[in-house]
Design a protein around this nucleic acid. Structure first.
Lengths: 197, 197, 197, 197
DNA sequence: CATGAATGAGGCTTCATTCAT
DNA sequence: GATGAATGAAGCCTCATTCAT
């Protein structure tokens, strides 16, 4: 329905797949166009038929992945009724996705922050939308009285996203296994109930 | 008192200063040895008299900054008595330092995660010590009954560090100003008291 | 007929030619990639599209020259019938080739010995084949009774090759002219008849 | 008696010794002044107090070694009476020295040929003297009727030196052990008696 | 739709060498 | 007699990118 997958030429698809694969193992700046092409069974030149740039390729791939990610989250949220339940779901779903989809998490956690250009990219909009979704739920929670009225919604969002991202770091960087459900529940518990005895 | 700065040759000092300065504006991989040298008023070759590598330069500079950072935090912590007060202080001090010392925060928040090599570097040990300090305080808090007994200390640490780091991101990347004290208080409030109404 | 020159891209050919030319005047380590490229009318980068290394370039060029060299020798040998006549031919042909083909002789006489890496290169195999050819002829000579039965074939080979190589040194290094036929005949006479009165 | 060893300053001696040692393992161009200095327990600058050049250092070291080498040979020769016996001795002694004194052989067999500059160096004179010694003995042999009258003495010398050097190559490059006496006897036999049946 | 030859800018690093102290 | 800080030139190599076919 996005109108993209329809008639994409084989070369384009191969390139994106190749790049996605490489991003699983290495970081952006250490992946060369030569590798991308070779890995895709395509010539280097072809990359520039479909992508303005190496960066453009990154953004387009990221875009595709993120779209999928956000779609999934939106669907799951509808299953929850209370705001807190929704946020719980987001925390859980985000952890799941981050860990399952290494490409996405690596880009969001590691790569993308390095490049100011990213923040002007289309891909960044998706991140923004994700963040806005969270913000809205928080605000609804405050409005509905579920969340304390004096809570700064922006700050809460930061704590939530920060917790999610940091919780994934060890896994993403060192490959340490992580019990997703326990972690999600724990984060949620800390943030909603506080840790004070 | 660290016994390091004493007899360091001028060139070495200039190089480190130059690099520190450049890191304020650009990210590691887009800083060239040529720039470092020019900016230091030194020849490129001299860099390799004092540093094995461009990376080695990064680590040594980071090391110096982090040492200072951790030193300050340790001193301030002693002023607090309760564990929660100590954690409050750490949150505040970390925010302050991160924002004041752009070099440090950029390296920790952005650069360093990209390089697996970093985790074998001496500089990483410092980060570990910082993390351990936080963990200890949490454990003391649990032992003393200040913090809920069923709290997972590792997870709490993740939430705290994640919150701190994420709270700084906007400032670090976009230069958005941040009210440090309010932010610190807010994070603390969320984490210790919870946001549930 | 070797099936190599057919579809070699122009750049590759130019680079090899340029390098061959430069080797005529200078020694390997004092030839720079910049010179090679300039002399070839090509950019430096292109070298690394076709050759892994500067060394790789050397080996591939050497390989091509040596192949030709050995081919010629083999053909000429068939014209001789006795073993001694064959060795005479080899001595003559080797001298001729060495002096005509400065590149080859310089590499074999001077450069190549410096680099242990050479002995693992494909080019070294060719040298081995050349040496083996000589050894076989000697052994045939011994078997057929032309050469004294108590001759150590390996040592004789050493003396032959040593004589050839040393005889060329003056020419190769100082450009002293050399009467090839007389020299060949002289070497042959010394080795086969001995110099004892 | 050469007037050198007398009051050589310690630094000079250390540098030469260090360099000699390094030449045992590596080749000239891959030994750096930094290594020489470090290995000598001296600063790089000091090298240039005593030697014009890195090359100059090479030549002076070579000179010392060669002088010793030639001295030994001269003494041994006097023990022989006939010219052929003398040449036999030279072949044997040369093989011995080459193999025992890796530095010397490596320089003569491998390094030195690469550099035209060498042939203007003082060290080259020594090689010349060595060569001239051999030539003289050959000429005496011809005059005395020991060696065939129609022998070209220059060519014979080439064959002799070529045989010696080539015989050592395998040992020097690959470390293949060599039975010196047998080899010397074999070379002598081939050259003086010929190999024709 | 795709190839593949070629570019060019610049990156990091090495090293012999000098000179003030 | 020796140090050690600093230089500068150049070397090899990498890589994103373009363009004619």
């Amino acid at each position: 329905m996005t109108g993209k997958e329809k008639s994409d030429p084989p070369g384009r698809i191969k390139i994106m797949a190749s790049f996605s694969g490489l991003m699983q193992e290495k970081d952006f700046s250490s992946i060369t166009t030569a590798q991308i092409a070779k890995n895709a069974g395509v010539t280097e030149g072809l990359i520039y038929k479909y992508f303005k740039d190496k960066k453009d390729l990154l953004y387009q791939v990221l875009d595709a992945h993120f779209q999928e990610f956000h779609e999934k989250i939106k669907i799951r949220i509808t299953q929850a009724t209370s705001s807190i339940a929704k946020l719980d779901l987001i925390i859980l779903a985000s952890l799941e996705e981050y860990l399952e989809n290494r490409l996405l998490s690596k880009i969001i956690l590691l790569e993308v922050r390095n490049s100011r250009a990213f923040f002007n990219s289309g891909a960044y909009k998706m991140v923004t939308i994700y963040a806005r979704t969270i913000l809205k739920i928080i605000q609804e929670g405050i409005a509905s009285g579920e969340i304390a009225a004096d809570t700064n919604p922006y700050l809460l969002r930061k704590v939530i996203i920060g917790a999610i991202e940091h919780a994934c770091l060890g896994e993403v960087i060192f490959g340490k296994p992580l019990d997703i459900e326990k972690t999600a529940a724990g984060i949620s518990d800390i943030i909603f109930n506080g840790v004070k005895a």
